[in-house]
Design a protein around this nucleic acid. Structure first.
Lengths: 300, 300
DNA sequence: CAAAGCCAGGAAAACGCTTTCCTTGATTTA
DNA sequence: TAAATCAAGGAAAGCGTTTTCCTGGCTTTG
């Protein structure tokens, strides 16, 4: 009692390392993220940090560049440092890591990768979202619809967005034109290059569905430089709802969702998991909605 | 020897907590940053992470929202967790924290705040950069030049950018029109609102120097909505050189510098400091340059 | 008033590693 | 061959906490 008071007065700071060692608990959450240079992921971090802070946890951020070897590396780092749990925002997710996670049975939540089985996850319904966006384009009278899709089939969200696109087209009785489906990196420049490829086809589509807003912004940018008008010549649809989407001209129509909310539910449930609570459901899907703005034209 | 081999085989992971406790070294770098929703800071994080990774350090990121109480809070958190050193990206920096840092004498590097005395720092020369940008505007024939400046005088970089602006004007024999200097938050929306205030003045300036690119983008956005043309009606100059600056139309003229490099030198020197090396100089200024694009018009 | 029950405070063990010290067996040298 | 040198492995102490256990003094109860 008295000794405690003395501690207060000398503004003594306990050694967290020693405490963690003794308690066998680190109050540390490992967070793996491909990149911070991405508005969506920024929001995700905010969400995660917010609730982990709330529960007295610290977060440790690792940038994986979406590469498996880095993920493996940091996974072990997190284990070494005795992280209580891990949030893994990974699109490129080989089974390798999955089994790794399972056999160490460290609490873990997957983010952004839907339809995953073994490990709890939180994500949006990419297939449905893409389906709705492309269906909207069809409703606006478009039938020649291309897609700037993510490059690697291993990228789950990218693949699902393509699936939704394909599904919407086939359902409308439209056959997919392979020339109009371009694989594309994630940067604005990648979007520009991909759009160029589309413009080089003999028959140019009237609308393009883009896998991300950054790609869409790149596409718009390229079209502008080429002297083509969006949406008069070509309509563009984005995905993610980043803030720049409402700033560029024309304002970008896009699929919007709250990455902050993804982050929050991920952190919230990871902490439950850590506490040993059983969480149900094991997969959360965060709502999305279409934000239709100016970049799509009604084709009569 | 044999026991080591056995460890390898059972893929044993050492407990970093125990190791750190025993060695009295955490290989942890605490990083305090106002916000991640800012391209500049993203680059900064990349730079820091890159070199800390190189030297075998882990980084722990804390978001302070630029608030002193949070900085104090995380500062103690970092001490508790035995961080080997701290990188503090703080604009709003009361002496309070400074003395705190000094008396605990934990290795620490300041980022983004120039002209600081006590603690080693890395930053750009905001005053000169702003001076050069505004001087460029003057050279282009502008004399009615406003500024969208950061709100709080405690925000060092914001204040210095204003100083550079003021200096350029006075040197050119132009008196500052208070109606054209608007205090402004950091978001795109803030930029829009501030620009509106400028437009409501009876005499509208021909050029606006903006404290950040995001503000500049907001300004351009507002002018577009109001039916005014950039640069025909009003010229806009930004600051930071974020990637969106070259994407929006018109392409934004701006002061560019490498935040990545800031982060890298900060981390590099923090680690030196931790190792007990004496670092000299104690303040590094990272170069900047003007990136003149389309948003400024030549006034004859 | 004595025996039983409590509570607070102190001592000791444990957490998993590093570091230091010491032993033991091997190698070198005269 | 015996003494001196060396290297490697094992034992023990220490890092700063938490947790468990124990003791001694205090309060309660019959």
């Amino acid at each position: 009692m008295r000794v405690l008071k003395a501690m207060e007065q000398t503004n003594f700071l306990p050694n967290a390392m020693a405490r963690n060692l003794a308690k066998n608990k680190s109050y540390l959450l490992g967070v793996m993220i491909p990149d911070v240079k991405n508005t969506v992921l920024d929001d995700l971090i905010h969400g995660i940090n917010h609730v982990s802070e709330l529960y007295g946890y610290n977060t440790m951020l690792s940038l994986t560049s979406g590469m498996l070897e880095n993920e493996l590396h940091y996974f072990n780092k997190f284990r070494e440092i005795q992280a209580d749990g891990i949030i893994l925002a990974s699109d490129y997710l080989k089974e390798n890591l999955i089994t790794n996670i399972k056999q160490t049975n460290i609490p873990c939540i997957l983010v952004g990768r839907d339809r995953s089985d073994a490990i709890p996850s939180v994500h949006i319904d990419n297939i449905t979202a893409a389906y709705e966006a492309v269906t909207y384009l069809i409703q606006q009278g478009h039938r020649k619809i291309g897609m700037l899709r993510l490059r690697n089939e291993d990228i789950a969200s990218g693949y699902h967005r393509y699936q939704g696109y394909a599904q919407a087209l086939t359902e409308a009785g439209i056959t997919i034109n392979g020339d109009w489906v371009i694989e594309c990196g994630v940067s604005v420049e990648d979007g520009m290059m991909a759009m160029r490829k589309i413009c080089e086809t003999t028959d140019i589509p009237t609308a393009i569905f883009c896998a991300t807003d950054r790609i869409a912004i790149g596409a718009i940018n390229y079209l502008y430089e080429r002297g083509l008008s969006v949406p008069d010549d070509i309509s563009i649809y984005g995905f993610d709802g980043i803030d720049m989407a409402s700033i560029i001209r024309p304002k970008l129509s896009t699929v919007k969702y709250s990455a902050t909310e993804i982050g929050m539910t991920a952190a919230r449930n990871l902490i439950k998991l850590i506490k040993g609570e059983t969480i149900t459901p094991r997969h959360w899907v965060i709502p999305h909605y279409l934000k239709n703005r100016e970049s799509v034209r009604l084709l009569k």
